[in-house]
């Protein structure tokens, strides 16, 4: 952000002389500084999503700070960045899924909902009276054509991935995801791997307490998006902790 200011960073409706839209870049920055990372893997039998989140308060009721949401029965969304913005995107996603169902009589395909949410987020980079969303999301889906993983970022970009990471530690997470055998990995195998990645990218110096939330949409879950079973989460967390300790 070398050329901060100079009057061109106030609105998304004006390019800077060197062709940048600062507000969108700041929105991406907001995602990275927000403190959470979301990762996802497309496996042979489904998609696994995982989010690392810091515990805001010891007095908070467990499970009330969800960062993985259902958009429809077969679609999950893991979010990073500004939570309130993410919930707005989530609501839009649910609306799109409902509307598609009632019009076409079928479940919305993963690439369609990703494209529509990308369009929605892009819309918020086009007008001076709108602020871009400070959130990046991962969308895991399982439709007639099989499992798919997409990401959408504040600029409205969306890609389909074999594995993806968004948020604070996305770069570190991506380099670890690349090492996974993505063409043969199953969801069951991916769950502890994602937990290990979450533990290894977590910066213990900044915050001690954090939690992992993992969901999947796969053959085992009946092609429905659900949080993984409690025992699987417990063993995954144990694997993550063990790997972290072995590393140290």
């Amino acid at each position: 952000m070398a050329s901060i200011g100079t009057g061109y960073d106030q609105s998304t409706s004006t390019f800077s002389p060197d062709g940048r839209i600062f507000q969108v870049e700041y929105a991406v920055k907001a995602v990275d500084t927000s403190g959470s990372t979301a990762i996802g893997v497309k496996c042979v039998d489904g998609v696994v999503l995982a989010v690392e989140k810091s515990l805001v308060s010891k007095m908070m009721v467990h499970n009330t700070h969800k960062r993985i949401f259902h958009l429809d029965e077969h679609i999950g969304m893991a979010v990073s960045g500004v939570q309130a913005d993410a919930r707005n995107v989530m609501n839009r996603g649910r609306g799109e899924a409902t509307q598609y169902r009632s019009t076409y009589g079928d479940a919305i395909p993963g690439d369609v909902i990703a494209t529509r949410l990308a369009g929605y987020m892009h819309l918020h980079t086009m007008y001076w009276w709108l602020r871009p969303f400070g959130t990046s999301v991962l969308i895991g889906s399982y439709d007639q054509d099989g499992p798919q993983l997409h990401d959408v970022d504040p600029s409205g970009l969306s890609y389909r991935h074999f594995a993806a990471a968004v948020g604070k530690a996305k770069t570190a997470a991506k380099s670890q995801l690349e090492k996974l055998p993505l063409s043969t990995l199953t969801c069951r195998q991916a769950v502890p791997e994602l937990a290990k990645i979450m533990y290894s990218i977590h910066d213990d110096l900044k915050e001690k307490t954090f939690e992992i939330e993992i969901s999947w949409v796969c053959e085992e879950s009946g092609k429905k998006h659900t949080h993984i079973p409690a025992d699987l989460l417990t063993s995954a967390v144990a694997a993550g902790k063990a790997a972290k300790e072995a590393e140290e």
Partner: peptide, 21 residues
Amino acid sequence: MHRNQTQKPTAVKTAAKLVSM
């Protein structure tokens, strides 16, 4: 429009649903 967006052949069920709607 639907095929433009999804970039793949539409399901017969979807066409029938639109007609009945």
